[in-house]
Design a protein around this nucleic acid. Structure first.
Length: 561
RNA sequence: UGGGGUGUAGCCAAGCUGGUUAAGGCACGGGGUUUUGAUCCCCGGAUUCCCAGGUUCGAGUCCUGGCACCCCAGCCA
């Protein structure tokens, strides 16, 4: 990670830590963890948590563990742990040898449960799922105690052992903490801490048929790993009482504390795991790494950089108010990063043929182009020029408004790094009226783009030589949804999928310099945006570029009005 | 009608124990530079901090009472 990245602004968690450090709590240690469940791919919301947790550890000279919260064998898969590890690394964070799994603690967790039973603070309940729900009460009515709540410690011990031994079927029994069925906090109404699941686990296989629940597992995993600050999202706020209850009622090796912050919401997308899984499973997108997805894998393939994502996470802040961030913040972080680093290059997305009539028929030449006009140290390259070139269709208008600086009949523009040309004639299809090509003249004295007589030209166009250009596929991406908040009001977000979220251009042309690009190389296509050689589909024989983000476009904005 | 949270410009977000002109970013508008209508550089915005009362010489910061929004009734995490 580069050192000059702006250090994140102050937030309430930093203040808590600073206060703890002042009181020398936890022997002055700061130890956090990032605890994903391996049941899907990581997304930009996880990036916020990753940056926070690893960032806190780094800032306070502490440690951050990677811990897989894998207590539900039915949803978790090895594929997901691999992708998660890859994504965290790609984002620029390292957990060194501290790669942990809640499933590694199953035996310890079991012993903790036994300890709770022995203290008469947990019991085996034989109510079925429906009954437990009924007994739980509602938001406004207290629950009722289970008839099995007062089983003896010995009986509970025996039954719990039977659960572990596989003698009890799924749904027959659960282990519950004995807390308070009338608590206004529903989490405290004798929460289930163990259930029977006769399912193979991605790591422990068939060695267990009972699995601990999140509320029991998470706090104890934190305690086992000596986590000092256990940072999670707001929906767990109500669970903190239970977190503390478990820790307080057991002899744990350490005393972690839970703090909650607001999860990330972004306009024009969804970030709930359920929704993302649905998009993938029902093939609304091409996969977890579809460039329209806000998964880490997706935005990576889209062309985002780890630095841009980290910068974004710094900018949005960490608070407890639930908010929606404007997409432009994310886009701006990428533009800012790529503006500094991406080599500039010319590409024509929707080609319009231009014949320069007074340019010698069989002649061609190479012009010098800067790889980054603001950074001479990035060098120059040669761009081939010839009598027939392509320009962007959008750069020509037959009836141009006054403010249109580009090419129009009789108008003169500059071809970047080449010559001034003037449009002499428009050739159209006689049937359809479609513009087929332009006949232009050039001024040989303007080679390189400057007129010796000092005459100015308003517009500069990018172009590509017909016979030298590489044919390329270019994929243009736009927001996945047409509504800023597609989930608002319990609506079905699928109704708002943007039908124009992807546009595939098969006839784009790029300058030959791009022949040597490699997958994931990023470029600025001048005047168009930042593009990346597709991670999966790029090859020198058939180049494929994805548009990561457009350039700011004040002309386009003006036009929309 | 229970509990837990949150409310500072269009969107985020600083604002320590109350004290001169309420940071900063994105977006937006205006101007300058420019062989990318990009970048870069200036300049602009809250008499006001959800509302209403109150305490105080003084409140976004304290008190009281409202209002709005979010989360919680999985043997998911």
């Amino acid at each position: 990670m580069s050192e000059n990245e702006s250090s994140a602004s102050s937030n309430f968690i930093r203040k808590i830590i600073a206060g703890d450090l002042q009181q020398n709590l936890n022997e002055g240690r700061v130890h956090t963890r990032f605890p994903p469940e391996p049941n899907g791919y990581l997304h930009i919301g996880h990036a916020k948590s990753i940056c926070l947790n690893f960032g806190l550890a780094k800032e306070y000279d502490g440690l951050c563990n990677l811990r897989f919260d894998d207590t539900n064998p039915e949803k978790e898969e090895t594929e997901f742990v691999e992708s998660i590890k890859q994504d965290v690394h790609w984002l620029g964070f390292d957990w060194q040898d501290r790669e942990y799994y809640a499933s590694d603690y199953f035996e310890q967790l079991y012993q903790f449960a036994v300890e709770l039973i022995k203290k008469d603070k947990a019991y085996v309940d034989s109510l079925n799922a429906d009954e437990i729900r009924e007994y739980r009460g509602t938001l406004t009515q207290p629950g009722k105690e289970s008839p099995h709540r007062n089983r003896s410690v010995d009986e509970n011990l025996l039954m719990f052992k039977d659960m572990r031994a596989g003698k009890i079927e799924e749904g027959e029994c659960v282990l519950r903490a004995k807390i308070d069925m009338s608590s206004p906090n529903i989490n405290m109404r004798d929460p289930i801490i163990y259930r029977v699941r006769k399912a193979a686990h991605h790591r422990t296989g068939d060695s267990w048929c009972i699995y601990p629940m999140y509320d029991f597992t998470h706090c104890l995993s934190d305690a086992i790993e000596s986590i000092t600050h256990s940072v999670c999202t707001l929906e767990f706020e109500d669970h903190r009482a239970l977190y503390d209850w478990v820790i307080d009622n057991l002899e744990t090796p350490s005393r972690p504390r839970q703090y909650e912050f607001a999860r990330l919401n972004l306009d024009y997308t969804v970030l709930s795991k359920r929704k993302l899984i649905e998009l993938v499973k029902d093939k609304y997108v091409s996969g977890w790494d579809d460039p329209r997805m806000l998964t880490i894998a997706g935005i990576r393939r889209r062309g985002y950089t780890p630095a841009a994502i980290r910068d974004f996470c710094d900018r949005i802040g960490v608070t407890k108010s639930d908010t929606r961030i404007d997409m432009s913040v994310l886009e701006n972080s990428l533009r800012e990063d790529l503006d500094k680093s991406a080599p500039r290059v010319m590409a024509v997305l929707k080609p319009l043929k231009v014949v320069i009539e007074n340019y010698p028929e069989d002649s061609e030449e190479e012009l010098d182009a800067a790889n980054h006009p603001q950074k001479p140290e990035m060098g120059t390259r040669k761009v081939p020029f010839s009598r027939t070139i392509f320009i962007e269709q959008d750069d020509f208008m037959e009836d141009a408004p006054k403010k249109f600086f580009r090419l129009a009949p009789g108008k003169e523009v500059r071809l970047r790094y080449a010559y001034f040309i003037t449009c002499q004639e428009v050739i159209k299809d006689e049937q359809t009226g479609e513009i087929k090509e332009l006949r232009c003249s050039y001024d040989p004295a303007t080679r390189g783009g400057n007129a010796p007589d000092g005459r100015k030209v308003k517009g500069t166009l990018h172009w590509v030589s017909e016979k030298h250009a590489l044919k390329s596929e270019v994929r243009l991406y736009d927001r996945l949804y047409t509504e800023a908040n597609p989930e608002e009001g319990g609506r079905d977000s699928k109704e708002f999928l943007n039908p124009a979220s992807i546009e595939i251009l098969k006839d784009a042309r790029v300058e030959p310099f791009l022949q040597n690009a490699k997958a994931e190389d990023r470029f600025q296509f001048e005047r168009l945006g930042y593009f990346v050689a597709d991670k999966e589909d790029w090859s020198p024989q058939s180049p494929v570029f994805n548009r990561a983000v457009t350039l700011r476009d004040t002309w386009g904005k003006l036009n929309k009005k």
